[in-house]
Design a binder for these strands. Structure first.
Lengths: 233, 233
DNA sequence: CGTTTAATTGACCAGTATCAACAGGAGTGG
DNA sequence: CCACTCCTGTTGATACTGGTCAATTAAACG
């Protein structure tokens, strides 16, 4: 899917770590300026890991381009994707000293990373920074709770409908989506198998709720129907 | 199960709101003191709601006694319990101006509540407070992610084993649990039905992993076996 | 083009849900 | 004190959603 996939192994079990660093500074206000001053750019190839579960959580990240995923694994290989991360999203800040989940690039991606210790110093100094961190974390918590309901109580059809509307929200287009992730990723995000995801897509196509010119592209034909199908009224 | 259940309707759909207020102050350090100074005690009867989904999120709460639950509902009545809250736990802080989930008492309970606006003022003033808020929120986020894996990828047996070990951690005893919540609550916490929860309990009893003198009491006979059964090694 | 990988589709199966009956306590009233 | 009722939990029979295994198609890459 990506031109560089052949160079580095895109296996999620043991991802490669690739990066190149460079200082940037995109000032907006005082605290944003202070924050940007400690950030360095890092790029990750498609399929590569940024960090693994259990790695030291020394940095906090913001996506500048591309898409990443955070995920957890059970010892027997079952996987749960916690979140897909799009440009503008933050991730990697955790309560414990090491990461409780892995972060991997879905497509080629670039992130800005901030040293956790310097971030803590900044937060200790500037109330605006700490308030912003809290706000962002609370937003993530709210999203996680929404997903608990999805995973615990929704049917396959409701899960996929919710997913498509979520992706549509993040899509530049109003009525179409270009899915950057594979069916396997979607399945592991929704707590389903790839076959069920595929079948549910086919059913949406059959019922003319969406059109599927190819596996990546989704054209929303009937947004109202899709919203009905989410289960949350 | 509770003596006052007959007095107030314990229906989760439309919970009653009962409370009584009183200023307290349990100082430890400067910021804890400042925090406690703005807290008021409120008590909630078993089965009653503290707030509903959609209510203004004007307060932040800490449990002092009893057990509560936070939950979300789908329009057709399906319910997902986000968390059970025990003494010492905090809840109710959210990104948006109103609550995205309801909070209800499982048993008779007492909470301390802090005005959100006064909390924000305190956090803006005292870096210790904001750091503590962030730390607590990050811890909650970590727990939510753990639960995503449970709901998305674990089997009924693994879910119940994980649940029992979680409850054991919070239990005063080392090898027994007194479950404060009903089978329905456990089912809605684990994304199962009450029948499956009951059957899985019976199977654990059959295999002599636990003993069940009555529906509330669980005696752990084989902790190692229970840990094996969680799926996360 | 041939090769490889991802996605779809089909047949069948299993885990969990659903529906229903039954058992065990707790509270109520005679 | 003993039925009687109500409520919660357990157990059984059966159904169905979604999983598993396998074959096929489609797309990507050299």
């Amino acid at each position: 899917m990506q031109t560089n996939l052949a160079i580095v192994p895109p296996i999620s079990g043991a991802p490669n770590f690739v990066g190149r660093l460079q200082v940037i500074s995109t000032a907006r206000d005082v605290s944003a300026d202070a924050l940007e001053a400690i950030g360095t750019v890092q790029s990750v190839r498609a399929g590569c890991g940024l960090y693994a579960e259990g790695d030291a959580a020394g940095y906090w990240y913001r996506v500048t381009s591309g898409v990443l995923r955070t995920c957890k694994l059970l010892p027997d290989g079952r996987r749960q994707i916690d979140d897909f991360l799009f440009p503008g999203d933050f991730f990697g800040l955790e309560a414990r000293p090491d990461h409780s989940f892995a972060a991997e690039a879905v497509t080629g991606a670039a992130v800005v990373r901030y040293s956790r210790t310097r971030l803590d110093l900044l937060a200790a100094d500037d109330v605006c920074v700490s308030a912003r961190l809290l706000q962002l974390t609370l937003k993530q918590l709210g999203k996680a709770h929404e997903r608990l309901l999805l995973l615990g109580r929704k049917t396959a059809g409701e899960k996929l409908a919710s997913f498509l509307l979520e992706m549509l929200d993040r899509s530049p287009a109003l009525d179409s989506i270009d899915l950057p992730m594979s069916r396997t990723d979607i399945a592991d995000y929704l707590g389903l198998t790839i076959e069920t995801v595929s079948r549910t897509f086919s059913s949406l196509k059959q019922n003319e709720v969406v059109a599927l010119p190819n596996a990546q592209r989704v054209i929303i034909l009937d947004r109202d129907a899709l919203e009905e199908l989410t289960g949350d009224e």
